[in-house]
Design a protein around this nucleic acid. Structure first.
Lengths: 298, 298
DNA sequence: CGCAGACTTGACAGTACTCAACCAAAGTGG
DNA sequence: CCACTTTGGTTGAGTACTGTCAAGTCTGCG
């Protein structure tokens, strides 16, 4: 009776995850080092001394809209997302918000504070969240006891760096369609990784936030989602996304062009609003007609 | 008789720096841990045991065009730039090059390899370069002996992460003019930091490489440089850049707009090709005339 | 029920890309 | 030494894409 669980059931998921990766103590949730490493997808040899119960890290819960840390605040903690969805935001000199990431389960937050000793970005909960507190001082101390932990830290930071490089590459080279497609694909991948459906999911962020993240205006994001919907690669209804042709989305760098797309729209319209399957986007027949008909009416 | 040294004199600079930050041994240059930390601008307490001569790191020289490491190559080394100019390049699925950074003195290279155990980008020398080899294994081992080194590593990686975040923010929010202006300002700052002139310097990279770095085509880069030249904020001649109004460049987010710019060009033309000082870009007088004169001739 | 915020869609405009011609500098080879 | 090629740069014309402005819809919530 249970289909692939959607990411709707946050509170349910939270409960079960909490049981997996935490224990009660003084009425609060705590995780040991091993559990934190597992959460971060850091390989740890099973017989490692890391598995000890000596060092516990406290969980903290945040409600939607709550700030985890603010810009300029002294840096002391790293945070590992155990459940929930967040955004990290940079605010530039003119007060413009720039979304930097949408952290979710198993992501690490707060790394930007290490160098300057205060946070250079802020993190906000987009849903109810369960985070694990990692005091940075404690972490570096532990690193001396467990050499593999040290390597793991380097590894996680390196991973984050590579992720940002990919982001820069995307912003530098992809069209609006390419960016939105990639965004959806990466979300789909993340959800799959977390055990949610990779086909149907809910966006946790607004069009404005998506646009900020991938360097577009909210209108362009909305239009592009509509366009992808219309050619049948996805289905959009407000925050609900259904991926219908992930391979097409993956391969997309630049939609053929606006003219061709208009043609396909025309076809779709002619075939009684049926959604076109994602094949043969490059066909170019019987379309000049459509345009020449429309032009006079405008 | 020595003006502020320009960055022309690479080989000279290399020699002097080598004497500063290296020593001969078996006919090769070596630096100790303290010198490497200084180069990376990592604060080290002077009485620290880090200052020891025990651990030496070898220098390696590269000629223009030589590759320091390639994509997919197993990761073993980090590199610290002691002198010279480089580029790091990402190559995506379709073989498109994407410039990620232009490392120069005191930058760290190769961090992207830590996570995946092989380099995900390649580094190429844009000039003669002197790099210090840091075997990663050796570094992590040393980290256990010198706790402050460990912190320093985290700090450097965090710094790099913040830099990339700023890059993402820029690509997401700035116009072509803003990007080029920022690029020039950041170069100017770097050169100042290295003791070169912040007013006049030579670009080490092509327009194509600049464009890739800041997400524009080479034509747009060229045009924008010409525009900044024309309004008198900089002076461009091929690879030579002279900054004439760095404050204007710093504040630039979006040039008033194309129309206003055309007006200023008109003014500049009328005043017999004199270069306009960078004031009052927003004046909007006597310009419709210019346009209406030009239009018919086209 | 009305309001505010999020989203969609249209019209229009301006920025930046594409294509292309041209120029300059630096090799290359006879 | 001079044609010739190659590479990098500049500039123009035209166009496509994406931003801006604006109107209107939908949703959730007090």
């Amino acid at each position: 009776m249970f289909p692939t669980k959607s990411n709707e059931t946050i509170s349910d998921a939270l409960k079960s995850v909490s049981l997996e990766a935490g224990r009660q103590k003084n009425g609060k949730l705590w995780s040991n080092l091993k559990e934190v490493c597992d959460l971060l997808r850091i390989p740890v040899s099973p017989n490692s001394s890391i598995a000890s119960e000596e060092t516990l890290f406290q969980h903290v819960q945040f409600k939607t809209g709550q700030r985890i840390h603010m810009i300029g605040q002294p840096f002391e903690m790293l945070y590992v997302v155990n459940s929930g969805f967040l955004k990290t935001v940079l605010i530039d000199e003119l007060g413009n918000e720039q979304i930097l990431s949408f952290p979710m389960k198993s992501d690490l937050l707060g790394v930007d504070g290490i160098n300057s000793r205060f946070y250079t970005s802020e993190a906000v909960a987009l849903s109810a969240c369960d985070l694990i507190l990692i005091p940075f001082k404690k972490l570096t101390t532990l690193g001396r006891t467990y050499p593999e932990l040290e390597n793991a830290m380097y590894s996680v930071m390196s991973r984050e760096l590579v992720r940002e490089q990919a982001m820069i590459s995307m912003l530098g080279s992809l069209s609006a369609e390419g960016r939105v497609a990639r965004f959806l694909v990466s979300l789909s991948d993340r959800f799959a990784q977390m055990g949610y459906s990779h086909r149907i999911f809910n966006l946790r962020m607004t069009r404005h936030e998506i646009g900020s993240y991938i360097g577009l205006t909210l209108e362009t994001v909305s239009r592009t989602l509509s366009a992808l919907h219309e050619i049948g690669w996805i289905s959009v209804d407000q925050k609900t996304i259904e991926i219908k042709d992930i391979q097409a989305l993956r391969n997309l760098r630049r939609l053929p062009n606006a003219k061709t797309r208009a043609k396909d729209k025309a076809k779709a319209a002619k075939t009684d609003k049926a959604i076109m399957p994602a094949v043969n986007l490059n066909q170019r027949t019987g379309t000049e007609y459509y345009e020449s008909v429309l032009r006079p009416t405008a």
